[in-house]
Amino acid sequence: NQASVVANQLIPIQTALTLVMMRSEVVTPVGIPAEDIPRLVSMQVNRAVPLGTTLMPDMVKGYA
């Protein structure tokens, strides 16, 4: 099973992502693949992302 990127904390809207905000976890449905974590650093979320939420491509500006 492929690991996805999951929020390690509440990430407020417009926040630039850092490594400490994300973790990898095998979840359903599958979100952004964990191997993309380095690419996500400094990208902004376009909505508030609660703790434990799987990051989906449409939540990160410039990802999809």
Rank of each mutant, 00 (worst) to 15 (best):
N1P: 15
N1S: 15
N1Y: 15
N1A: 15
Q2C: 09
A3W: 08
A3H: 14
A3M: 11
A3V: 07
A3G: 14
S4C: 04
S4W: 03
S4L: 03
S4P: 01
S4F: 03
S4I: 02
V5R: 00
V5M: 01
V5E: 01
V5L: 03
V5P: 00
V5A: 11
V5W: 03
V5I: 13
V6A: 03
V6N: 00
V6L: 09
V6S: 01
V6Q: 03
A7Y: 02
A7N: 01
A7I: 04
N8Y: 04
N8K: 08
N8P: 01
Q9Y: 12
Q9G: 04
Q9D: 06
Q9E: 11
L10I: 10
L10M: 15
L10A: 13
L10N: 15
I11G: 01
I11M: 03
I11R: 01
P12L: 06
P12C: 06
P12K: 08
I13H: 12
I13F: 13
I13C: 15
I13A: 15
I13R: 09
Q14K: 14
Q14C: 13
Q14F: 13
Q14G: 12
T15F: 05
T15H: 08
T15M: 09
T15R: 06
T15Q: 08
T15W: 04
A16H: 15
A16Y: 12
T18R: 07
T18S: 10
T18M: 06
L19P: 09
L19I: 11
L19W: 09
L19D: 06
V20Q: 13
V20T: 15
V20C: 10
V20H: 13
V20Y: 15
V20W: 12
M21C: 04
M21L: 04
M21H: 09
M22Q: 01
M22G: 01
M22D: 03
M22K: 00
R23K: 12
R23N: 05
S24Y: 10
S24I: 08
S24P: 13
S24K: 13
S24R: 07
E25Y: 06
E25H: 07
E25M: 09
E25P: 00
E25Q: 07
V26K: 06
V26Y: 10
V26P: 06
V27T: 11
V27Y: 01
V27M: 05
T28C: 10
T28A: 12
T28H: 09
P29N: 05
P29T: 05
P29D: 06
V30L: 12
V30W: 08
V30T: 10
V30R: 06
V30I: 14
G31C: 04
G31N: 00
G31K: 00
G31R: 01
G31S: 01
G31F: 03
G31A: 03
G31L: 01
I32L: 04
I32G: 01
I32T: 02
I32V: 08
I32S: 01
P33M: 06
P33G: 05
P33Y: 09
A34V: 08
A34S: 14
A34F: 06
E35A: 10
E35I: 12
E35T: 12
D36R: 09
D36F: 13
I37T: 06
P38D: 11
P38M: 10
P38N: 11
P38K: 12
P38C: 14
P38S: 14
R39W: 11
L40M: 05
L40S: 00
L40F: 01
V41R: 05
S42V: 04
M43Q: 08
M43F: 07
M43L: 11
Q44M: 13
Q44G: 03
Q44I: 11
Q44F: 14
Q44A: 08
Q44T: 14
Q44C: 15
Q44L: 13
Q44P: 09
V45D: 02
V45R: 00
N46I: 09
N46Y: 12
N46E: 13
R47M: 11
R47Y: 11
R47L: 10
R47K: 15
R47T: 14
R47W: 08
A48H: 14
A48Q: 13
A48I: 13
A48F: 11
V49L: 09
V49R: 00
P50K: 08
L51Y: 13
L51V: 10
G52R: 00
G52V: 03
G52A: 06
G52Q: 02
T53I: 08
T53A: 12
T53N: 10
T54S: 04
T54I: 14
T54H: 02
T54K: 04
T54Q: 03
T54A: 06
L55P: 02
L55H: 01
L55T: 01
L55I: 14
L55G: 00
L55Y: 02
L55C: 00
M56A: 06
M56H: 07
P57T: 05
P57H: 07
P57M: 06
P57R: 06
P57K: 12
P57G: 07
D58T: 09
D58C: 15
M59T: 05
M59C: 06
M59Q: 03
M59N: 06
M59R: 01
M59I: 06
V60R: 00
V60E: 03
V60M: 05
K61C: 15
K61I: 15
K61P: 13
K61F: 11
K61Y: 14
K61R: 13
K61H: 14
K61Q: 15
G62V: 04
G62Y: 08
Y63C: 05
Y63G: 03
Y63A: 03
A64Q: 14
A64M: 13
A64L: 13
A64G: 14
A64W: 05
